[in-house]
């Protein structure tokens, strides 16, 4: 069992590390400050996956990103899932732990998808209570991520961003702001993405996600199977202008490119951040 916490995560870009790249990653040790892994892929009692993560955490900041807790679900929280998550958190001592503002099961039947919440006061109360319970169980704060959605439920009592902010304030959690998901949902539902960004207080955001999406018959699908689009890069620069520097992750889960391609995408995110700061400094200088 590792004896020290994993390295801290700076306000720079990292990559999602997937099993396809494990061996190459350990052999080449790319120049990156941090990686993120899906928590559930390391719920095993033993074996190679955990050994890889033990090795990675010695040299890189690690973020554990869950996809299966069904925080917004109406089934009871799965005690076995929570126990395995806590065991992993204790083993890895990650700099960040995150999950999603979504649900994925009903009556014990899981769809293993990130399903949208109705943006109501009742749903907000329910979700905030469950996030608080999870944080208490884990003994630490978590971040919760906005998801891409392809439908909205009738009877919404607030915007998605108001829901997210109130959730963070009530549960005392942070926000993992997925800029691609904002873009996808904004396009699919017809709201201005910039309004979403403006509605998120910078101090609540602990991490930013970037990913690729795919257009299918006039609707955008969050496939994580392509490079970040130009429109999302633009929105990312807007986000950094409003939020300030944040740890940023390149997510790519399907049709995985080479490790070099992933690292290059992270480098591009850092370059976009530098560009944003230079412009901001220039604007400040002109004002002064």
């Amino acid at each position: 069992m590792p004896a020290t916490a994993s390295r801290p995560i700076p306000a720079q870009a990292g990559i999602g590390l997937r099993s396809t790249h494990h061996d190459e990653f350990l052999a080449r040790r790319p120049h990156l400050p941090w990686v993120e892994v899906h928590s559930e892929n390391f719920f095993a009692d033993g074996g190679r996956q955990l050994q890889v993560l033990d090795a990675v955490r010695r040299d890189y900041g690690v973020s554990l990103h869950g996809v299966g807790l069904s925080l917004g679900g109406s089934d009871p929280l799965d005690p076995e899932h929570l126990r395995r998550l806590r065991r992993l958190v204790q083993r890895v001592e990650p700099a960040l732990v995150s999950e999603h503002v979504c649900w994925s099961s009903a009556d014990g039947l899981f769809l293993n998808d990130l399903l949208p919440m109705p943006y109501t006061e009742a749903a907000l109360r329910h979700l905030a209570a469950r996030i608080s319970a999870v944080q208490e169980f884990l003994g630490r704060q978590i971040l919760v991520e906005n998801v891409s959605s392809y439908l909205e439920f009738d009877g919404a009592e607030m915007t998605e961003w108001d829901f997210l902010v109130q959730l963070a304030r009530r549960a005392g959690c942070g926000i993992l702001l997925d800029v691609n998901n904002i873009y996808v949902s904004a396009e699919n539902h017809g709201f201005p993405a910039y309004n979403y960004l403006r509605g998120i207080p910078a101090e609540l955001v602990g991490e930013v996600h970037l990913a690729g999406h795919t257009a299918v018959d006039g609707i955008l699908i969050d496939t994580h199977s392509a490079p970040v689009t130009d429109a999302v890069w633009t929105l990312y620069r807007d986000a950094l202008g409003l939020l300030g520097p944040k740890p940023t992750l390149i997510e790519w889960d399907a049709e995985l490119p080479s490790l070099d391609r992933l690292v290059a995408e992270a480098t591009r995110a850092d370059e976009q951040a530098s560009l944003t700061w230079r412009r901001a400094e220039g604007a400040h200088a002109r004002v002064a």
């Binding site: 399903l115 329910h126 169980f137």
Partner: peptide, 22 residues
Amino acid sequence: MPASPEAVQDFSLKELQRQFVR
């Protein structure tokens, strides 16, 4: 185990999710 937050569970949320999965 966390204290049960299910006490605040909203029935209409439960029904919505049940219908969605079905």
